[in-house]
Amino acid sequence: MNESPETLAHQRSRLLLDPEELPPSETPWQEFLRIYLKDYQALLGFWVLMLLLVTAFAGKVFTEWWVVFDPEVVRLTDTFLPPFSVPSPDSIEVDRPLGGVYLMGTDELGRDVFARMFQGSFVSLSIGFVAVGISLGIGIVLGGLAGFYGHVKLGFVTVDTLIMRFTDAMMCFPRFFLILTAVALLPPSIYTIMMIIGFFGWMGTARFVRAEFFSIREQDYVVAAKALGIPEGRIIFRHMVPNALAPVFVSATIGVASAILTESGLSFLGFGVPPPYATWGNILSDGKGFIFDAPWLFFIPGLAIFIVVLAFNLVGEGLREALNPKLRRR
């Protein structure tokens, strides 16, 4: 004990780290951004989707509210014109497209494909979002119930058994076939298609949310919230759901992509969105009959669907990488 008090104090000050010298702590959001912004595929996908969103809203505005591009004008003088061609001289003056050129050609009725694609962008996208919204809603509620109230007994079975057995049963059916049956039996309308695609897509979400809830339920902050006497509804929706949502968000992004593909598959089989609405799926399936005479009717919507679905998938994968620490490069 021959050390002077000075040196002790000096050592102590060395042990207490100066907060200025520490690397800045990252919030989870900053960490997420750092990883996501490095992933150039996911970034590209993100910008494609932003562009698509703008296009879709512009499409809604310019083809329905303030009609600049009318997708429904039939011009029998101008059928099967290739992209970038000008209207024929004997076409009706007022029916000519804006700028006097068919950017993406015309179809078998002389309708402007560009206007139809423009309108379809909003319809296709809203089918994807509404369907996924419905399946997320059902999945989160059922998965949350099973995960939080799973141990509660109703008669001789627990809530968890009841919900998960139903989920398992639904997963046994070939999904596309069920959707097709439902769409064929119900009156044809764009809303039934959205709802049906949503109603048969919640099983994965429910299982995710349940698994997340199981692990979150035991975490300290939930136990603390319970100890504070916070009502259960508030614990579930304010504390647990936001923490369980990360994987759900990823699967939602990919879900939008698969809903758009499902819609195009339904269109191919003749059960797509009925005529007044153009969707990319039904433009594509109408175009398949003219693959030799008018290839643009087939390739333009096909490539559009491909690019958009790819963008959704890349964004979903980028989110997954950025949100899931296990997959990160060490």
Binding site: L261, I291, I305, V309, L310, N313
Partner: peptide, 13 residues
């Protein structure tokens, strides 16, 4: 990713 993003019937055609 590209392969799961194509509508199945488009690729088949």
């Amino acid at each position: 990713y590209a392969l799961i993003s194509v509508p199945g019937f488009f690729l088949s055609f």
